[in-house]
Design a protein around this nucleic acid. Structure first.
Lengths: 153, 153
DNA sequence: CACTATTGTTCAGCACGCTGAACAACGCAA
DNA sequence: TTGCGTTGTTCAGCGTGCTGAACAATAGTG
């Protein structure tokens, strides 16, 4: 008994993390049956308009190059992307969407539209989304090369 | 240049994840200098009213027992909690806050109040918080034992 | 051509989340 | 006591995030 769920007393950052996990989790059923992961989905999303280098994908997804490297590897293993070396600059790995990748991404878009049940618990879904976009835009200047902006000590 | 940051087109779940990472990251400076982690902080938070078993902590933090197990281990390693076996039920590990733990938690609370700069980017901070609380309350029924609610197949 | 710096990617290793499985201790029944 | 199911915790292993370091290839300088 006592205090059952004083979630309201949590720090906002923690609230954000837990909410993210919970929502991610609600996608798991869909994703697992398709053999893809939630991180891979955003990469697919960024790839829909054409081939990109891993660096570009990392920038776009607001993650480090290392993280995107592994995500792409996973995506490739699942057959959703193709990897090739840029003939002009052989350091670069150019990532391209396969048909299956394009297909599964389209399906995910549909599913997102069809099942707003999860986020339906929110009063002002659109307002909430907007706040998130603001937050990410404000805080997520870049990353990718994992720049350490203020090493004063 | 093309499309620089179409964050607004991201799925909401991804937005949530990235926002969480970004906000978490803004705490890193504070946490790192104190030798604690963001996951540990919520455990400390739950411990402030008295000793708890790991199971209770897991419930309270909306994570699985396994995850809490490792978090407590880390906290113990850092000297913020003490662990003991319940004499009544020797299966149980009772976790208690140390003085240092209580101290660092209080400091974190203060810091949270003093530096709302990060979340200050938001228009309606309170409304946003409220949405998060609603979301977590609605979706985060429990976890801990990692119950699989619907294994129909 | 070597020398050095920069750029693109991967490797090593950690934190944090999860699931499945193992293990120890308890509780209940025969 | 033995046996078995339940409960509390940890171990194994994976996915996603990070940092720091290594490595390969390109580019600039002599």
């Amino acid at each position: 008994m006592a205090g059952p769920d004083p979630v309201a007393s949590w720090p906002t950052g923690r609230l954000l993390s837990v909410a993210a996990r919970l929502v991610e989790h609600s996608w798991q059923e869909f994703l697992a049956t398709r053999g893809l992961t939630h991180a891979g989905l955003i990469a697919l999303h960024l790839l829909r308009e054409g081939p990109r280098t891993q660096r570009e994908l990392a920038h776009g997804a607001k993650v480090t190059d290392q993280t995107m490297s592994r995500t792409v590897e996973r995506l490739h293993r699942a057959g959703f992307v193709e990897r090739g070396t840029d003939p002009v600059d052989r350091r670069r790995t150019v990532v391209t969407l396969t048909d299956r990748g394009r297909d599964v991404h389209a399906e995910a878009l549909r599913a997102e539209r069809d099942e707003p049940e999860v986020l339906g618990a929110l009063r002002d879904y659109e307002a909430f989304r907007l706040q998130l976009v603001e937050l990410v835009t404000a805080l997520g200047v870049d990353r990718s090369t994992a720049a350490r902006p203020d090493p004063r000590g």
